[in-house]
Amino acid sequence: MAASMLRSGWSSLLLLVTLAAYSQPADSLRGFRKPTGLRVGTDLIALGKTIARVPLTGWELNADIDLGRFYPVVELGSWKRKQPLVNGMYTNSGRYARIGMDINFLLKDPDKNMFFIGFRYGRASYSEQVSYTLTPDLFPVVQQTLSNAGARAGWAELTTGLRVKVWRGFWMGYTARMKFLPHTSGTSAFDSYDIPGYGLPFKGLYWGFNYQVFWRVPFERH
């Protein structure tokens, strides 16, 4: 299954690169160009969850830079889950980072609004703990606590979304993510239940969504 997901992921990537190469005339921003500004933003959904005190709390910062139609992206985040279970409690806490590239398909927009398709590679470093009650037949009830103190994980993503200039340097947008190929290490006590920046790894494909606000800092004043 992982191999077929990897194949479909690479196929999709190849398709979008091909689309990027042939969808615009030669005088457009098809190639790489000198960057004109840095855009820094954050995810409102993560902040909303944190304020609402849902089981998952955290923050995420996003930054990209324009190289013609190509936008190298760095994303950093913090993720903490406190999930009550029917027989105990699961908690995790950690940081994650993603790097990748977005490819803009709206090349003639004067404001550089974007509809993009892109890819990411993510890494997370985190700790997790589960405490639960076991009620085995005939043997006494047991309270069990297990920890993965130095867990690490990696994964890949295909992304798509919009970036729209609202006013001056203020931008808004969203990013939809298809996450796949999660892999973990340092999880000897139990298999990871929730990977910061990814989600539940045992579900195979996992979907994510960010609603973001940005501030763009131009490198040169016109």
């Binding site: 999930q83 009550p84 279970l85 029917v86 027989n87 105990g88 699961y90 589960v130 639960y132 076991l134 069990q144 297990l146 006590a189 139990f190 298999d191 239940y193």
Partner: peptide, 14 residues
């Protein structure tokens, strides 16, 4: 003995 956290409704199982 291997612990797995299955879901919030099923909990953690050994």
């Amino acid at each position: 003995v291997e612990t797995q956290v299955v879901s919030k409704d099923c909990g953690a199982l050994a």
